[in-house]
Computed example of a mutant assay.
Amino acid sequence: MPNPRRVWFPNAWYHITARGNRKTDIFYDEHDRFKYLQLLREAKHTYPFHLHAYCLMSNHVHLLIETIDTPPGSFMKEIHSQYARAFNKKYGYVGHLFQGPYKAHLQGDVNAILQVSRYIHLNPCRALLTLEPEAYKWSSYPHYLSPTPFYSDLITTKTVLSYFKDVKQYESFVQLANKSTSGHPNNG
């Protein structure tokens, strides 16, 4: 059955997810994660978009993307094709890496965008990989808290932070949900 046509328009916001085939890992080490981030960065230069949040888990990814002039299918297909080829070559695998096409959930308003941002940043806590989201290296959350973030040309924090008085208020917004879900196993 063909995939349903995705709704797209300039400046649309999407929560994009992609999972490993049969829920298997798509990242084995930090080099794999660096490769995925490198492909995201390259795609941003070819097909400009804003990446507002990300989290790279072992078997799936979460991205909060705002399009500019290009639908997400143009760059997501390229990112995932290139990553799958590199991953398969590196590990001597063949076949599909991802469990079907990526999922893209259109975000309808500011509240939805802020909730998805928090959800993405708390994913490692829900998966019990860390108690504090800022401790997880493969998430954009540390970028929101740091004046000189790693991969600063990749992530855009200004828009999400503009809905808060300051960085501390955003941190409280995220941490409040973290405290209410601590200790509940969930693989995100």
Rank of each mutant, 00 (worst) to 15 (best):
A86V: 03
K44Q: 15
E132D: 14
G188F: 15
L114A: 07
T46N: 04
C125E: 03
E30C: 07
F150K: 12
R85M: 07
L161P: 06
L161H: 06
L39C: 07
L63E: 07
D25K: 09
A84G: 11
N123Q: 01
H62L: 11
Q107I: 14
D25I: 02
G188Q: 14
L56R: 06
L64G: 04
E78P: 01
K89T: 12
S162C: 03
A127H: 02
D109Y: 03
I113P: 13
T130W: 03
R118A: 13
M57C: 12
Y144H: 00
G100T: 01
S172H: 11
D32I: 01
P2F: 15
G20E: 00
E66W: 00
Y119G: 06
G20M: 00
I155A: 11
P4S: 07
M1Y: 07
H121A: 07
Y28E: 07
H184W: 06
K77T: 10
I79H: 12
A53E: 00
A135I: 03
H60I: 02
P48D: 05
E30W: 05
Q82E: 11
H121N: 13
Q169W: 00
M76T: 06
R33V: 04
S152I: 02
Y47F: 15
D153I: 02
Q175R: 04
Q38D: 14
R126E: 05
D29C: 04
D29M: 03
Y136P: 02
D153K: 10
K158M: 13
N187L: 15
S58K: 07
G188R: 14
P4E: 06
P10K: 10
D25G: 00
C55E: 09
P10Q: 11
R33I: 04
I155Y: 05
A127E: 02
H105I: 14
D166W: 05
K158W: 13
N21P: 05
H121M: 11
H96T: 04
K90A: 06
S74E: 08
L63P: 08
H80Y: 04
A127F: 02
I68E: 15
P48H: 04
L51W: 09
S139C: 01
Y54L: 07
A84F: 11
S117M: 12
H80T: 01
C55Q: 09
P4L: 12
D109T: 04
Q82F: 08
Y119E: 06
K179T: 06
F27H: 10
G188Y: 14
T46H: 07
L106C: 05
L128T: 12
Y47S: 05
C125R: 02
G188N: 15
Y93Q: 04
S172K: 12
T157I: 14
F87C: 11
I79W: 13
D109H: 09
K168F: 06
P185F: 12
N123D: 02
P10H: 11
K137D: 01
N11I: 01
N186P: 00
P4V: 10
W138K: 07
K77A: 09
T17E: 00
L128K: 14
T159Q: 11
H121L: 08
